[in-house]
Nucleic acid binder design. Structure first.
Lengths: 142, 142
DNA sequence: AAGGAAAATTATAATGATTATAAAATAACA
DNA sequence: TGTTATTTTATAATCATTATAATTTTCCTT
């Protein structure tokens, strides 16, 4: 964790460590505000700007991914490996899906264009919500 | 064009026709403001809200695609067929690429999740900018 | 062709995520 | 321990987008 910051030439601060700790292994795809709200009780002096700044440098350094699957807000993923993100239209949660199209290994060349990065966003209904809906139907006999 | 509006149960207005006309066959991926600026001289009374409203209903009806490849602004594509979008980091233009991953035919099922929609955003350097860079290097002997 | 209800347009204000600013605090080096 | 560059903080600014409410227009009906 400390190494990630040092590797990027950043100073070690309690705020940055706390943000990295929240992100570490986190698959909930928090927004900047989610992180801010989670840390505020332990860090009463924490500023939202610090969270934004830290996420920006981490994303710039390739340590976290910006997930722009929703139109209104950015979310963050500490897993920098390419994988797709899936937004359930029912529960509004973002999930990782570790499939990746075989014909999209980066970097690659498509019709003369150099492709360096890629975001794959999927939309639909997650298996949890499908199950709920199915059960609801059966129980209510609709 | 008129049919598109009628099909969606919308009234035919000069503003909507003008917006549809700009979009028809357009591959430049304009933003709402781009469209507004282009139409304002011919439609001095046009309001930006009208452009946003029209694009929203067209997108809702599946007649145009929202392209969220840039983090700050939405762009629009009159081609509703799934295809990927490519942002050149040098010239900042958005291009269509008509490739599509073979293993992503919609709708489909991935690990129990129902996938209904998909956005594929690519980032890199377009062939035009690659050529310019290459030539620049040769000419300057760097 | 005129009337009228429902929908659309308009000008404007509000929203809300993100970014910029500048002063105060802190980390890390000598 | 002192110093300097960096970071944090509080706050304001930005800017795309959405909401509001009054006016205008479409289009169905007569």
């Amino acid at each position: 964790m400390i190494n990630k910051l040092k590797k990027m030439g950043l100073k070690i601060t309690p705020q940055r460590l706390a943000i990295l700790k929240i992100l570490d292994g986190n698959t909930s795809h928090p927004s900047a505000e989610d992180i801010y709200k989670e840390l505020k009780p332990q860090f009463p002096s924490l500023s939202l700007a610090t969270v934004y700044n830290t996420l920006e440098v981490l994303a710039g350094g390739g340590e976290v991914q910006e997930v722009r699957i929703k139109s209104d807000k950015k979310h963050f993923d500490p897993n920098p490996a390419p994988h797709c993100h899936f937004l359930c239209r029912v529960c509004d949660n973002i999930y990782d899906l570790d499939m990746w199209p075989e014909d999209l290994q980066l970097p690659c060349d498509i019709k003369g264009n150099l492709i360096q990065g890629c975001n794959l966003y999927l939309y639909g209904i997650c298996f949890r919500c499908r199950d709920k809906y199915k059960n609801g139907n059966n129980n209510n006999n609709n």
